[in-house]
Amino acid sequence: MTELTVRAEQYADWTLLRPAGEIDLVSGRVLRERVHGAVAEGSRRVLLDLSEVRFCDSSGVGVLIAARRLLRSCGGELRLVLPEASAVAECAPVHRVFAALGVRRLFDIHPDVPSAVSGDEGEFALPA
Protein backbone atom coordinates (compact mmCIF):
# COMPACT_ATOMS: atom_id res chain seq x y z
CA MET A 1 0.00 0.00 0.00
CA THR A 2 1.16 3.51 -0.84
CA GLU A 3 2.06 5.59 2.20
CA LEU A 4 1.61 9.34 2.46
CA THR A 5 1.51 11.44 5.60
CA VAL A 6 0.85 15.17 5.67
CA ARG A 7 1.93 17.38 8.57
CA ALA A 8 0.34 20.82 8.85
CA GLU A 9 1.58 23.96 10.58
CA GLN A 10 1.34 27.72 10.31
CA TYR A 11 4.33 29.60 8.94
CA ALA A 12 3.83 33.36 8.96
CA ASP A 13 0.44 33.82 7.24
CA TRP A 14 0.80 30.59 5.25
CA THR A 15 -0.65 27.16 5.92
CA LEU A 16 2.35 24.91 5.44
CA LEU A 17 1.58 21.33 4.45
CA ARG A 18 4.47 18.86 4.47
CA PRO A 19 3.58 15.65 2.63
CA ALA A 20 6.02 12.78 3.10
CA GLY A 21 6.10 9.58 1.07
CA GLU A 22 4.50 8.96 -2.32
CA ILE A 23 1.80 10.94 -4.11
CA ASP A 24 -0.01 8.69 -6.55
CA LEU A 25 -3.50 7.53 -7.53
CA VAL A 26 -4.11 5.85 -4.16
CA SER A 27 -2.48 8.32 -1.76
CA GLY A 28 -3.29 11.54 -3.60
CA ARG A 29 -6.67 11.76 -1.86
CA VAL A 30 -4.88 12.33 1.48
CA LEU A 31 -3.16 15.46 0.17
CA ARG A 32 -6.29 16.62 -1.66
CA GLU A 33 -8.31 16.33 1.59
CA ARG A 34 -5.68 18.28 3.56
CA VAL A 35 -5.66 21.11 1.00
CA HIS A 36 -9.46 21.22 0.91
CA GLY A 37 -9.53 21.22 4.71
CA ALA A 38 -7.11 24.14 4.90
CA VAL A 39 -9.22 26.14 2.45
CA ALA A 40 -12.43 25.23 4.30
CA GLU A 41 -10.83 26.57 7.50
CA GLY A 42 -10.14 29.90 5.77
CA SER A 43 -6.59 29.53 4.53
CA ARG A 44 -5.98 31.35 1.28
CA ARG A 45 -2.20 30.97 1.23
CA VAL A 46 -1.05 27.37 1.09
CA LEU A 47 2.54 26.25 0.87
CA LEU A 48 3.26 22.62 -0.04
CA ASP A 49 6.72 21.51 1.01
CA LEU A 50 7.54 18.57 -1.28
CA SER A 51 11.05 18.00 0.06
CA GLU A 52 10.03 14.68 1.68
CA VAL A 53 8.10 13.36 -1.32
CA ARG A 54 10.07 10.50 -2.81
CA PHE A 55 7.67 9.68 -5.67
CA CYS A 56 4.95 11.51 -7.58
CA ASP A 57 3.16 10.15 -10.63
CA SER A 58 0.89 11.94 -13.09
CA SER A 59 -2.16 11.53 -10.84
CA GLY A 60 -0.16 13.12 -8.02
CA VAL A 61 0.63 16.04 -10.31
CA GLY A 62 -3.10 16.20 -11.01
CA VAL A 63 -3.70 16.66 -7.28
CA LEU A 64 -1.22 19.56 -7.25
CA ILE A 65 -2.88 21.16 -10.29
CA ALA A 66 -6.30 20.80 -8.66
CA ALA A 67 -4.96 22.42 -5.48
CA ARG A 68 -3.66 25.33 -7.54
CA ARG A 69 -7.02 25.67 -9.28
CA LEU A 70 -8.92 25.54 -5.97
CA LEU A 71 -6.83 28.26 -4.37
CA ARG A 72 -6.99 30.49 -7.43
CA SER A 73 -10.78 30.11 -7.56
CA CYS A 74 -11.10 31.59 -4.06
CA GLY A 75 -8.53 34.35 -4.58
CA GLY A 76 -5.80 32.37 -2.85
CA GLU A 77 -2.27 31.36 -3.67
CA LEU A 78 -0.37 28.08 -3.81
CA ARG A 79 3.41 27.85 -3.67
CA LEU A 80 5.56 24.73 -3.78
CA VAL A 81 8.85 24.01 -2.05
CA LEU A 82 10.94 21.67 -4.15
CA PRO A 83 14.66 21.69 -3.33
CA GLU A 84 17.19 21.14 -6.06
CA ALA A 85 17.47 17.46 -6.91
CA SER A 86 21.18 17.60 -6.17
CA ALA A 87 20.51 19.00 -2.69
CA VAL A 88 17.89 16.44 -1.67
CA ALA A 89 18.19 13.19 -3.61
CA GLU A 90 14.62 12.15 -2.70
CA CYS A 91 13.30 15.07 -4.78
CA ALA A 92 14.83 13.86 -8.06
CA PRO A 93 11.79 11.74 -9.05
CA VAL A 94 9.48 14.72 -8.48
CA HIS A 95 11.69 16.92 -10.66
CA ARG A 96 11.65 14.23 -13.36
CA VAL A 97 7.86 13.93 -13.45
CA PHE A 98 7.45 17.72 -13.53
CA ALA A 99 9.90 17.88 -16.45
CA ALA A 100 8.32 14.95 -18.29
CA LEU A 101 4.83 16.41 -18.01
CA GLY A 102 5.95 20.00 -18.68
CA VAL A 103 4.07 21.39 -15.68
CA ARG A 104 6.79 23.26 -13.85
CA ARG A 105 5.70 26.55 -15.39
CA LEU A 106 2.25 26.16 -13.80
CA PHE A 107 3.63 26.43 -10.27
CA ASP A 108 5.42 29.00 -8.16
CA ILE A 109 8.32 26.79 -7.02
CA HIS A 110 11.00 27.67 -4.46
CA PRO A 111 13.98 25.73 -3.05
CA ASP A 112 13.05 26.23 0.62
CA VAL A 113 10.28 27.47 2.89
CA PRO A 114 11.77 30.91 3.74
CA SER A 115 12.21 31.85 0.07
CA ALA A 116 8.70 30.61 -0.73
CA VAL A 117 7.18 32.71 2.04
CA SER A 118 9.14 35.81 1.04
CA GLY A 119 8.43 35.26 -2.65
CA ASP A 120 12.12 35.37 -3.55
CA GLU A 121 12.95 33.72 -6.81
CA GLY A 122 14.78 30.50 -6.19
CA GLU A 123 15.36 29.25 -9.69
CA PHE A 124 17.30 26.09 -10.21
CA ALA A 125 17.99 23.74 -13.07
CA LEU A 126 15.87 20.68 -13.65
CA PRO A 127 17.75 17.41 -14.09
CA ALA A 128 18.22 16.22 -17.65
Results as ranks from 00 to 15, higher is better:
Leu25Lys: 14
Glu84His: 06
Cys56Gln: 04
Val26Phe: 12
Ile65Ala: 08
Cys56Gly: 09
Phe107Pro: 00
Val30Asp: 10
Cys56Glu: 06
Val88Thr: 04
Gly102Ser: 06
Pro114His: 00
Leu70Gly: 01
His36Asp: 15
Ser59Glu: 15
Asp112Arg: 00
Val88Gln: 02
Asp49His: 04
Trp14Phe: 14
Ala85Leu: 06
Asp13Trp: 00
Glu9Trp: 02
Val53Gly: 07
Ala100Phe: 11
Ala99Ile: 06
Ala67Cys: 09
Ala125Lys: 11
Ala8His: 09
Gly21Ala: 07
Leu16Trp: 00
Leu4Asn: 01
Leu80Ile: 12
Arg105Asn: 03
Glu77Tyr: 04
Ser118Pro: 03
Tyr11Glu: 12
Val103Pro: 01
Leu78Pro: 02
Cys91Ser: 15
Gly42Ser: 06
Thr5Pro: 03
Arg54Ala: 15
Asp49Leu: 01
Glu3Arg: 03
Arg69Leu: 07
Val53Ser: 05
His36Lys: 13
Ser118Thr: 15
Glu3Ala: 05
Leu16Thr: 01
Glu121Val: 11
Arg105Leu: 00
Ile23Ser: 06
Leu126Lys: 01
Glu90Phe: 07
Arg29Gln: 14
Pro93Lys: 09
Gly60Val: 13
Asp112Gln: 01
Trp14Asn: 11
His95Pro: 08
Leu71Cys: 10
Arg29Ala: 15
Leu82Val: 09
Val46Met: 02
Ala38Asp: 05
Leu4Tyr: 04
Ala128Tyr: 09
Ser43Thr: 02
Val53Thr: 11
Arg54Tyr: 05
Phe124Pro: 00
Phe55Pro: 02
Thr5Glu: 12
Gln10His: 08
Asp57Glu: 13
Arg32Thr: 12
Glu90Ser: 12
Gln10Met: 05
Glu121Met: 02
Gly21His: 04
Phe98His: 07
Arg54Thr: 14
Val35Met: 08
Leu48Cys: 10
Gly21Glu: 03
Val63Leu: 10
Glu123Phe: 07
Asp112Pro: 01
Ser51Thr: 03
Ala40Arg: 08
Ala116Arg: 10
Ala8Ser: 15
Phe55Lys: 08
Ile23Ala: 08
Arg69Thr: 15
Val117Thr: 13
Leu82Ala: 05
Val30Tyr: 07
Glu3Thr: 04
Pro83Glu: 09
Arg96Lys: 09
Arg7Asp: 15
Glu77Trp: 08
Trp14Tyr: 14
Arg105Ala: 09
Glu77Gln: 15
Gly37Leu: 06
Glu41Thr: 11
Pro93Tyr: 10
Ala20Pro: 00
Leu82Ser: 08
Gln10Arg: 14
Thr2Asp: 12
Asp120His: 13
Ala100Arg: 05
Phe124Asp: 11
Gly75Val: 14
Ile23Lys: 07
Leu16Ser: 00
Ala128Leu: 13
Val63His: 11
